[in-house]
Amino acid sequence: MTTAEWLDIGWVDQIPVRGSRTVQVEGGDDIAVFRTAEGKVFALLDRCPHKHGRLSQGIVHGGAVACPLHNWRISLSTGEALGDDKGCTPTVPVKIDGGRVLICRAGTLKAAA
């Protein structure tokens, strides 16, 4: 249920395993919501810190996503670039409640701004 604190964006099953969906934020960048092979769900700004590639379109493996533009690997939990690359993309707190995916309203606004 959407509250003052959390936005209810849909069922977990709507996000493909090892895949991603997006939430459009009017007046801002999209939020990418990921689901890993282990079933964990993460949300990040849909923008690579490198050249602003759409992370939602990348290949999800382990706890990371490979950006589709230049294959930077971004940690889904921290938003940080892994390996030798340096950079960080904002994360948005997520929780699962009764199979529904909730993302933090304040975090969404802050990240998408």
Binding site: T2, L7, I9, G10, Q14, P16, T22, V25, E26
Partner: peptide
Amino acid sequence: AEHHAPMARFIPQGRAFLEEIGA
């Protein structure tokens, strides 16, 4: 269709807070 449609659309100000897209 999930590859193309967003999961939801969030409008910070205005009447509708959150539109669920489905799919």
